[in-house]
């Protein structure tokens, strides 16, 4: 049997694991809102400090968080560059003339090509990209032999730099907070917590229990479906479906040959499952007791009080400074 893990739960014993998922979700919300209230670099750095403190006490390795940040690296880089280039207020910190000459153009293309071909062998890909980009910029600024093709000025202003830094830190905080939640809470507990928090929504006719049941069944069947998708792929590969070859028209057919069986089997499965659930006296919307219930401890209250304190502080510093 293959082992499929949903979510990224990391087993542990720290206070984060002892907390009720409800309080964890609420605390996360409060901290996120507080982060958005802050408008100053110093304040947001203090906030980052608080988050790092939570990580430290919670015993979560920074490496795991870094892994969670990976997918948004590009986004971070993009906002950073955007902020630096377009914000032109505050003091001018740095300016340089970037000149593209007949010599540096092919050199630049060569460097980019070299980066492209070698990046797969480098362990720290992101760092490698940064060094390459920085290298090109330095070259364009300092090395200007031959006739000039084009030139422009790169100006970095104080506000641009601090703004870029600010936004980056804010994004990192948000992602880190949500990663803490998913790392320390099992998907099932998270589901149960969400169900309880969303319960008041029944006033506007949203049934939290039903949504939670759907999520729980999805969690249960995702590994089964993945396994099945794999088998269908193998079965069709046995009939000559080869995804690496073929024209576009064939490709469409190949994808259909995977999707149709997936759907047909899933419909049959949901039909069987509905029968099995009904046969075991499940009635949608009817009251049920639960094997797993949540219990709120002093720890949860403490954490929430702490978060509210942060929230009030955030408002205060926003208004005062």
């Amino acid at each position: 049997m293959k082992n499929i893990i949903i979510g990224q739960y990391l087993p542990g014993t720290s206070f984060l694991y002892k907390m009720d998922p409800r309080s964890k979700i609420i605390a996360l919300m409060i901290l996120m809102i507080s982060t958005f209230i802050l408008k100053d670099v110093t304040h947001i750095l203090i906030m980052l400090g608080v988050v790092l403190l939570i990580l430290k006490i919670g015993g979560i390795p920074i490496a795991r968080i870094a892994r969670g940040l990976k997918p948004i690296m590009i986004l971070l880089l993009f906002t950073f560059t955007f902020q630096i280039i377009f914000i032109k207020t505050g003091t001018l910190i740095f300016d340089a003339e970037l000149t593209l000459t007949v010599f540096t153009l092919p050199l630049m293309i060569f460097i980019i090509l070299f980066w492209y071909l070698t990046r797969r062998y480098i362990k720290f890909k992101f760092l490698y990209l940064l060094i390459t980009a920085f290298g090109i910029l330095t070259m364009l600024a300092l090395y200007t032999p031959g006739s000039v093709l084009s030139s422009s000025t790169l100006e970095v202003y104080g506000d641009g730099l601090s703004g870029a830094f600010f936004i980056m830190v804010r994004l990192i905080i948000i992602v880190t907070l949500s990663t803490i939640l998913t790392l320390t809470t099992k998907p099932t507990d998270l589901n149960l917590g969400l169900e309880k928090i969303l319960k008041p929504l029944s006033i506007i006719r949203i049934n939290a229990e039903e949504i939670a049941m759907i999520i729980s069944i999805a969690l249960r069947y995702i590994p089964t479906l993945l396994d099945e998708a794999n088998k269908i792929m193998l079965a069709q590969a046995s009939r000559g479906v080869d995804f690496t070859e073929g024209k576009l028209k064939d490709k469409v057919m190949q994808i259909i040959s995977l999707l149709v069986p997936m759907f047909i089997i899933s419909f049959k499965r949901s039909d069987d499952l509905a029968n099995a659930m009904e046969a075991r006296s499940f009635v949608p919307g009817k009251r049920r007791t639960r094997l797993h219930t949540l219990s709120w401890h002093n720890l949860d209250t403490t954490v929430i009080v702490f978060c509210i304190f942060i929230f009030i502080s955030a408002i205060t510093v926003r208004v005062m400074f």
Binding site: T188, L273, M277, S281, L291
Partner: peptide, 15 residues
């Protein structure tokens, strides 16, 4: 139905 064995045994009783 359940995500784990105990959840599945519990399902009918919960209902």
């Amino acid at each position: 139905v359940g995500v784990t064995v105990e959840d599945d045994i519990a399902f009918g009783m919960e209902n």
